[in-house]
Protein backbone atom coordinates (compact mmCIF):
# COMPACT_ATOMS: atom_id res chain seq x y z
CA UNK A 1 0.00 0.00 0.00
CA UNK A 2 1.51 3.27 -1.06
CA UNK A 3 1.16 6.35 1.06
CA UNK A 4 -0.90 9.29 -0.09
CA UNK A 5 2.24 11.37 -0.56
CA UNK A 6 3.79 8.81 -2.90
CA UNK A 7 0.62 8.71 -4.95
CA UNK A 8 0.60 12.47 -5.24
CA UNK A 9 4.27 12.76 -6.16
CA UNK A 10 5.77 13.59 -9.52
CA UNK A 11 7.06 10.73 -11.65
CA UNK A 12 6.24 7.11 -12.41
CA UNK A 13 4.98 6.21 -8.92
CA UNK A 14 2.92 9.31 -8.41
CA UNK A 15 0.08 10.81 -10.36
CA UNK A 16 0.92 14.47 -10.01
CA UNK A 17 2.43 14.72 -13.49
CA UNK A 18 -0.67 13.13 -15.04
CA UNK A 19 -2.97 15.48 -13.16
CA UNK A 20 -0.79 18.44 -14.13
CA UNK A 21 -1.27 17.42 -17.76
CA UNK A 22 -5.02 17.40 -17.10
CA UNK A 23 -4.81 20.92 -15.70
CA UNK A 24 -2.94 21.97 -18.83
CA UNK A 25 -5.66 20.51 -21.07
CA UNK A 26 -8.48 22.10 -19.05
CA UNK A 27 -6.85 25.52 -19.06
CA UNK A 28 -6.03 25.28 -22.79
CA UNK A 29 -9.60 24.30 -23.60
CA UNK A 30 -11.08 27.14 -21.54
CA UNK A 31 -8.64 29.70 -23.00
CA UNK A 32 -9.27 28.48 -26.55
CA UNK A 33 -13.05 28.61 -26.07
CA UNK A 34 -13.08 32.10 -24.59
CA UNK A 35 -12.20 34.18 -27.70
CA UNK A 36 -14.48 32.04 -29.88
CA UNK A 37 -17.41 32.43 -27.49
CA UNK A 38 -16.79 36.13 -26.93
CA UNK A 39 -16.65 36.89 -30.64
CA UNK A 40 -19.75 34.87 -31.48
CA UNK A 41 -21.58 36.32 -28.48
CA UNK A 42 -20.71 39.86 -29.55
CA UNK A 43 -22.02 39.40 -33.08
CA UNK A 44 -25.20 37.72 -31.84
CA UNK A 45 -25.76 40.62 -29.47
CA UNK A 46 -25.28 43.00 -32.40
CA UNK A 47 -27.93 41.07 -34.31
CA UNK A 48 -30.30 41.08 -31.34
CA UNK A 49 -30.12 44.85 -30.89
CA UNK A 50 -30.48 45.69 -34.58
CA UNK A 51 -33.46 47.53 -36.04
CA UNK A 52 -34.06 44.74 -38.46
CA UNK A 53 -36.71 42.35 -37.13
CA UNK A 54 -35.47 39.30 -39.05
CA UNK A 55 -31.95 39.75 -37.66
CA UNK A 56 -33.30 39.99 -34.10
CA UNK A 57 -35.37 36.88 -34.61
CA UNK A 58 -32.41 34.92 -35.96
CA UNK A 59 -30.35 35.88 -32.90
CA UNK A 60 -33.14 34.98 -30.52
CA UNK A 61 -33.63 31.56 -32.11
CA UNK A 62 -29.92 30.86 -31.56
CA UNK A 63 -30.05 31.87 -27.91
CA UNK A 64 -33.25 29.94 -27.23
CA UNK A 65 -31.82 26.74 -28.66
CA UNK A 66 -28.41 26.78 -27.04
CA UNK A 67 -29.53 28.08 -23.67
CA UNK A 68 -32.26 25.44 -23.53
CA UNK A 69 -30.14 22.39 -24.31
CA UNK A 70 -28.12 20.71 -21.56
CA UNK A 71 -24.40 21.38 -22.06
CA UNK A 72 -23.65 17.68 -22.05
CA UNK A 73 -26.21 17.05 -24.79
CA UNK A 74 -24.81 19.91 -26.89
CA UNK A 75 -21.39 18.35 -26.49
CA UNK A 76 -22.65 14.94 -27.66
CA UNK A 77 -24.62 16.49 -30.52
CA UNK A 78 -21.49 18.24 -31.75
CA UNK A 79 -19.17 15.31 -31.13
CA UNK A 80 -21.31 12.58 -32.71
CA UNK A 81 -23.27 14.81 -35.09
CA UNK A 82 -20.22 16.33 -36.74
CA UNK A 83 -18.57 12.94 -36.89
CA UNK A 84 -21.56 11.34 -38.64
CA UNK A 85 -22.09 14.34 -40.90
CA UNK A 86 -18.44 14.45 -41.96
CA UNK A 87 -18.41 10.69 -42.44
CA UNK A 88 -21.44 10.79 -44.74
CA UNK A 89 -19.97 13.69 -46.68
CA UNK A 90 -16.68 11.89 -47.08
CA UNK A 91 -18.36 8.67 -48.22
CA UNK A 92 -19.65 10.51 -51.25
CA UNK A 93 -16.07 10.77 -52.49
CA UNK A 94 -14.36 7.82 -50.91
CA UNK A 95 -16.50 4.97 -49.55
CA UNK A 96 -13.59 3.50 -47.61
CA UNK A 97 -12.64 6.59 -45.68
CA UNK A 98 -13.26 6.96 -41.97
CA UNK A 99 -12.91 10.13 -40.03
CA UNK A 100 -12.25 10.79 -36.38
CA UNK A 101 -13.38 14.11 -35.00
CA UNK A 102 -10.99 15.65 -32.52
CA UNK A 103 -12.57 15.74 -29.06
CA UNK A 104 -10.71 18.94 -28.16
CA UNK A 105 -12.23 20.76 -31.14
CA UNK A 106 -15.68 19.31 -30.43
CA UNK A 107 -15.42 20.45 -26.82
CA UNK A 108 -14.27 23.89 -27.94
CA UNK A 109 -17.14 24.29 -30.40
CA UNK A 110 -19.82 22.99 -28.01
CA UNK A 111 -18.66 25.04 -25.04
CA UNK A 112 -18.12 28.06 -27.30
CA UNK A 113 -21.66 27.85 -28.63
CA UNK A 114 -23.12 27.63 -25.11
CA UNK A 115 -20.84 30.42 -23.87
CA UNK A 116 -21.77 32.66 -26.79
CA UNK A 117 -25.50 32.29 -26.24
CA UNK A 118 -25.12 33.46 -22.64
CA UNK A 119 -22.53 36.09 -23.54
CA UNK A 120 -24.86 37.57 -26.15
CA UNK A 121 -27.37 38.33 -23.38
CA UNK A 122 -24.66 40.01 -21.30
CA UNK A 123 -23.50 42.09 -24.28
CA UNK A 124 -27.11 42.94 -25.15
CA UNK A 125 -27.84 44.40 -21.72
CA UNK A 126 -24.52 46.27 -21.90
CA UNK A 127 -25.52 47.69 -25.29
CA UNK A 128 -28.79 48.89 -23.76
CA UNK A 129 -26.89 50.64 -20.97
CA UNK A 130 -25.04 52.84 -23.48
CA UNK A 131 -27.03 56.00 -24.25
CA UNK A 132 -27.86 56.66 -27.92
CA UNK A 133 -26.08 60.02 -27.60
CA UNK A 134 -22.79 58.13 -27.79
CA UNK A 135 -23.63 56.90 -31.29
CA UNK A 136 -24.90 60.33 -32.30
CA UNK A 137 -21.76 61.97 -30.89
CA UNK A 138 -19.60 59.62 -32.92
CA UNK A 139 -21.66 60.39 -36.00
CA UNK A 140 -21.39 64.15 -35.34
CA UNK A 141 -17.60 63.84 -35.19
CA UNK A 142 -17.65 62.27 -38.62
CA UNK A 143 -16.69 58.80 -37.53
CA UNK A 144 -17.90 55.95 -39.66
CA UNK A 145 -20.20 53.37 -38.05
CA UNK A 146 -17.39 50.85 -37.69
CA UNK A 147 -15.07 53.39 -36.10
CA UNK A 148 -17.81 54.59 -33.76
CA UNK A 149 -18.29 51.01 -32.66
CA UNK A 150 -14.57 50.38 -32.20
CA UNK A 151 -13.47 53.67 -30.64
CA UNK A 152 -16.54 54.87 -28.75
CA UNK A 153 -18.89 52.03 -27.96
CA UNK A 154 -16.61 49.03 -27.45
CA UNK A 155 -14.46 50.48 -24.64
CA UNK A 156 -17.57 51.35 -22.64
CA UNK A 157 -19.24 48.07 -23.53
CA UNK A 158 -16.37 46.01 -22.13
CA UNK A 159 -16.41 47.90 -18.86
CA UNK A 160 -20.16 47.39 -18.41
CA UNK A 161 -20.14 43.77 -19.54
CA UNK A 162 -17.10 42.73 -17.48
CA UNK A 163 -18.91 41.48 -14.32
CA UNK A 164 -21.32 39.37 -16.38
CA UNK A 165 -18.55 38.02 -18.58
CA UNK A 166 -16.38 37.10 -15.62
CA UNK A 167 -19.28 35.05 -14.24
CA UNK A 168 -19.53 33.30 -17.58
CA UNK A 169 -15.79 32.59 -17.53
CA UNK A 170 -16.12 30.87 -14.15
CA UNK A 171 -19.05 28.83 -15.50
CA UNK A 172 -17.02 27.94 -18.59
CA UNK A 173 -14.15 26.75 -16.40
CA UNK A 174 -16.53 24.41 -14.58
CA UNK A 175 -18.24 23.25 -17.78
CA UNK A 176 -14.91 22.05 -19.19
CA UNK A 177 -15.24 19.10 -16.80
CA UNK A 178 -17.90 17.72 -19.16
CA UNK A 179 -15.37 17.00 -21.93
CA UNK A 180 -14.07 14.12 -19.84
CA UNK A 181 -17.25 12.35 -21.03
CA UNK A 182 -16.02 12.40 -24.64
CA UNK A 183 -12.58 11.16 -23.71
CA UNK A 184 -10.48 14.29 -23.46
CA UNK A 185 -7.80 13.98 -20.75
CA UNK A 186 -8.80 16.93 -18.62
CA UNK A 187 -8.43 17.21 -14.84
CA UNK A 188 -11.46 15.09 -14.09
CA UNK A 189 -10.57 12.27 -16.47
CA UNK A 190 -6.99 12.08 -15.24
CA UNK A 191 -8.22 12.04 -11.64
CA UNK A 192 -10.72 9.33 -12.59
CA UNK A 193 -7.98 7.18 -14.14
CA UNK A 194 -5.82 7.64 -11.05
CA UNK A 195 -8.78 6.80 -8.82
CA UNK A 196 -9.52 3.60 -10.70
CA UNK A 197 -5.92 2.40 -10.73
CA UNK A 198 -5.04 3.25 -7.12
CA UNK A 199 -8.48 2.77 -5.51
CA UNK A 200 -8.04 6.08 -3.71
CA UNK A 201 -11.09 7.62 -5.34
CA UNK A 202 -11.94 10.12 -2.62
CA UNK A 203 -8.44 11.53 -2.51
CA UNK A 204 -8.07 12.00 -6.25
CA UNK A 205 -11.54 13.47 -6.81
CA UNK A 206 -10.92 15.67 -3.78
CA UNK A 207 -7.66 16.86 -5.35
CA UNK A 208 -9.53 17.50 -8.62
CA UNK A 209 -12.15 19.62 -6.88
CA UNK A 210 -9.45 21.57 -5.04
CA UNK A 211 -7.71 22.25 -8.36
CA UNK A 212 -10.96 23.61 -9.80
CA UNK A 213 -11.30 25.80 -6.71
CA UNK A 214 -7.76 27.10 -7.13
CA UNK A 215 -8.43 27.84 -10.82
CA UNK A 216 -11.56 29.76 -9.79
CA UNK A 217 -9.65 31.75 -7.16
CA UNK A 218 -6.81 32.54 -9.57
CA UNK A 219 -9.36 33.68 -12.17
CA UNK A 220 -11.10 35.91 -9.63
CA UNK A 221 -7.78 37.57 -8.83
CA UNK A 222 -7.05 38.00 -12.54
CA UNK A 223 -10.51 39.39 -13.25
CA UNK A 224 -10.13 41.80 -10.35
CA UNK A 225 -6.87 43.07 -11.89
CA UNK A 226 -8.55 43.51 -15.29
CA UNK A 227 -11.51 45.31 -13.71
CA UNK A 228 -9.16 47.65 -11.87
CA UNK A 229 -7.16 48.45 -14.98
CA UNK A 230 -10.32 49.10 -17.03
CA UNK A 231 -11.69 51.24 -14.20
CA UNK A 232 -8.45 53.19 -13.90
CA UNK A 233 -8.43 53.97 -17.59
CA UNK A 234 -11.94 55.27 -17.12
CA UNK A 235 -10.84 57.47 -14.20
CA UNK A 236 -7.89 58.93 -16.10
CA UNK A 237 -10.08 60.13 -18.91
Amino acid sequence: MQSAWTLLSWGSDGWLDDIAYGVFVTVCLALATLPLGLMMGFFIALAKQSNEASLRLAGNVYTTIFRGLPELLTLFLVYFGVQIGAQNLLRLFNPEATIEVNSFVSGMVALGVVFSSYASEVFLSAFRAIPPGQYEGGHALGLSRGRTMRLVILPQLIRIALPGLSNLWLILLKDTALVSAIGLSDILRQAGVAARVTKHAFMFFGVASLIYLVLAIVSSVGIGAIARSVGRREMAR
Binding site: G192, A195, A201, F202, F205, G206, S209, Y212, A216, I217
Partner: peptide, 14 residues
Protein backbone atom coordinates in the same frame (compact mmCIF):
# COMPACT_ATOMS: atom_id res chain seq x y z
CA UNK B 1 -16.56 26.94 -7.33
CA UNK B 2 -16.31 23.31 -8.39
CA UNK B 3 -18.12 21.52 -11.23
CA UNK B 4 -21.26 19.62 -10.33
CA UNK B 5 -19.83 16.62 -12.17
CA UNK B 6 -16.81 16.56 -9.84
CA UNK B 7 -19.06 16.82 -6.78
CA UNK B 8 -21.15 13.93 -8.05
CA UNK B 9 -18.03 11.82 -8.65
CA UNK B 10 -16.70 12.77 -5.24
CA UNK B 11 -19.85 11.43 -3.60
CA UNK B 12 -20.52 8.41 -5.80
CA UNK B 13 -17.01 7.09 -6.46
CA UNK B 14 -15.14 8.97 -3.74
Amino acid sequence: GTPLLVQTFLIYYG
